[in-house]
Each structure stands twice: as C-alpha cells, then as structure tokens.
C-alpha cells in the first residue's frame, strides 16, 4: 500500500438510504445505514478484497466507488481528483477508467445485442476509435478473455454461464481501465468454472496492471485473489490488512468467527481451527446497535462496547497497515494452531 499517492482514496464514505412512510404524505421516517464511514485506499495495480455477509454494505460500496450511487457523505478521490459529487461531464473521463464486472452473467448482458455490439458499446459511448476499428479491437478482447473471436456475431444466450462472465470481463476491459470493481464475479458459476474465471482475472491483473476492488462473500476466493482484504460488518470496516496478516492473525472477533465458520474440504477429524459459532442474526441496518455494531453477537462485549464505537486503528501487536476496530482485540495463541497438520494425501 503506497500511502503517498493511491489510485483510489476513500475517506468517511457514507450512504444512507432514506425509508419513506407515513400517511397521507410520505416523508422520511428513517434511514438504512448501508455504508457508514469507510476509509480505505487502493494503490495502482493492487487488489483489495471486500468480504462480509449479505447486507454488510459491500455491494453498496462498489456502487459508490463507480458512482452508480450518490454518496451521502465522505469523499472519493480518484488519482487525487475529488469525484464524490462530480457531475456527468466531469465524470466521463474517470468513468472510462473505472469499470465494473457484475455478479449475474445472465442479467448483465443485453439479450438482444450481439457480443460484438455489447463489447464495443463502451467504446462507442465514449467516442473511442481504436486503430483498425471497433471490430478488430473486440476480436482482440475476445481472444484476451479466452473466447473464440469468431463468436463476434453471436448472442448471449448461445453461451454458457462462464463464457458470459468472460464477455462481461471483455466489456469491462474495452476502455483499458485502471480500476475494476468486481462485485461477486464468480459466485453465480459452477465450482469448476469459478476457477477458470478467477485465473483469468488474475492474469489480467498481472499482465495489464489493473487495480481491483474484489467484492465476494467467499473467503477462500478473496484470499486467493486479493493482496489486501477488508472485512465489513453492518456498513463498517471492522478489520483491514494484508491477506497473510488477516487470515493468519485475525484480531477482530468477527473476522475470527467468520474464518472459523468456513467449512473446508478435508477429511480431518480435528478441524484446523477452533470453530466459533455466532448466535443470532445480523441486526437491521435501519437501527444498528450503539457503539460497536458487532457487540450484540460478540462473546467479549462489555459496557464499553455499547457506548463507545471502536476506531479502526493499528491495535497493539498489529503489523504496519493492519487496522482493527475493536476494544478487545483477539490475541493469537502463543502456540500456533496445528494448521499444517493436514492429511499428507491431499496436501503433501
């Protein structure tokens, strides 16, 4: 993480969706606090993973960065330029550099357009005329994402889910973006196909130097893809760190619980990490708990947690860049859990 000049600099980002109600005249009776004061940076060519459970605000964050939603507060800076409330004209050049890949490969492609038309769409809108024309460029892009360039005139329904997601990737690449926001790009795909798309995205990141904000709920895939990972809970980042630090030394109780709940495909009798079973459900973002938002499900919560929201800071024992928002951070046992004692048949 280069603090000096990040590609994307987000401070205090907030989005509250108003809830209307009442009779006879609708008025605002509350707000869903979808995202509440996020701070993070994305360096050039870096991949930041956003994980969390449904409703934690990770998709809203993605839509705020791409300015598909208007932030309620805070600021978003792209290459030092404030785009928080930038207008359409001002946004146009930035929009071509920030692209998005969507979750549902069926809903995100227009069924009435050919693949060629879909992928050249962004170029037409932005008035970009690549040398050799749109068609040549589209064929190149199809090849880049591992599709047959001859499929230029086909329609989306002629492709499988994994191939459609590749079309979505090609469309995002058409404008040579610097930052791609990928919102659950593989969760709609079959396991064997997920790996194909993850590998493709990783190749692109490496070869083209594109920065990624990778939103997913699958912790293993995020770990595989992102150098840095932020864990969100109820609209806030509770922990952010390099992946090694986050996965090996989680300091926030929620991060630890989340990691412990992931079932792993091993036949070991003793699980590699102690299972922490959280009780209850995520509270409503309409009326989040006071203080620390996780306190209603936390086994360590005290009076302090209810009155004082813990700041996202480098708590004692954290390495540089590892920030945790907790009054009582977890301490790694001095004897590390026997994580590598996996079955030799599978891992050796």
């Amino acid at each position: 993480m280069s603090n000096t000049n990040p590609l994307l600099d987000v401070t205090g980002l907030t989005k509250h969706f108003p809830v209307m109600g009442g009779f006879p005249f609708k008025r605002k009776i509350g707000a869903v606090q979808a995202v509440d004061g996020l701070d993070f940076q994305v360096a050039e060519g870096e991949s930041l993973g956003l994980v969390g459970e449904s409703g934690c605000g990770k998709s809203t964050t993605g839509r705020l960065i791409t300015r598909l939603l208007e932030p309620t507060g805070g600021s978003i800076k792209y290459r030092g330029q404030d785009i928080t409330h930038a207008g359409r004209k001002q946004l146009a050049p930035v929009r071509s550099e920030i692209q998005m890949i969507f979750q549902d490969p069926y809903a995100s492609l227009n069924p009435r357009q050919t693949v060629g038309k879909i992928i050249s769409g962004p170029m037409e809108i932005n008035g970009i005329n690549p040398p050799g024309g749109h068609e040549k460029r589209v064929r190149e892009l199809l090849e880049t994402v591992g599709l047959n360039p001859e499929h230029y005139n086909r329609f989306p329904h002629e492709f499988s889910g994994g191939q459609r997601q590749r079309i979505g990737v090609a469309r995002a690449l058409a404008l040579e973006p610097k930052l791609i926001v990928a919102d659950e790009p593989v969760s709609a795909l079959d396991v064997s196909i997920q790996a194909q798309v993850v590998n493709l995205l990783q190749e692109l990141q490496r070869d083209l130097g594109i920065a990624f904000v990778f939103i997913a709920h699958d912790l293993a895939i995020v770990r595989h893809f992102s150098e840095r990972v932020a864990v969100m809970y109820l609209g806030k980042i509770v922990e952010i760190a390099d992946r090694e630090d986050l996965y090996d030394n989680p300091r926030h109780p929620y991060t630890r619980a989340l990691l412990s709940a992931v079932p792993e495909a091993t036949a070991d009798e003793v699980p590699s990490r102690e299972r922490i079973l959280l009780t209850g459900d995520v509270p409503s973002p309409l009326n989040p708990p006071s203080g620390c938002r996780f306190r209603t499900r936390c086994w360590k919560a005290t009076e302090k947690c209810a009155t004082e929201a813990p700041p996202l800071v480098q708590v004692e024992g954290n390495r540089e860049g590892h920030l945790t928002a907790c009054h009582y951070p977890e301490v790694k046992e001095t004897v590390p859990a026997p994580r590598l004692s996996k079955d030799p048949g599978v891992t050796a």
Partner: peptide, 18 residues
C-alpha cells in the same frame, strides 16, 4: 473439483487448476 477450489491456507501465488 478439489483442485479448482482455493483453500484458506493453500498457496496464493499459483493459479488454480480449473
């Protein structure tokens, strides 16, 4: 199937085996 799934403690710098 097993090879295409990333794990929580496997190597991260090698591509998956789809």
């Amino acid at each position: 199937l097993l090879g295409s799934m990333p794990s929580l403690d496997g190597p991260v710098d090698v591509p998956l085996n789809p």
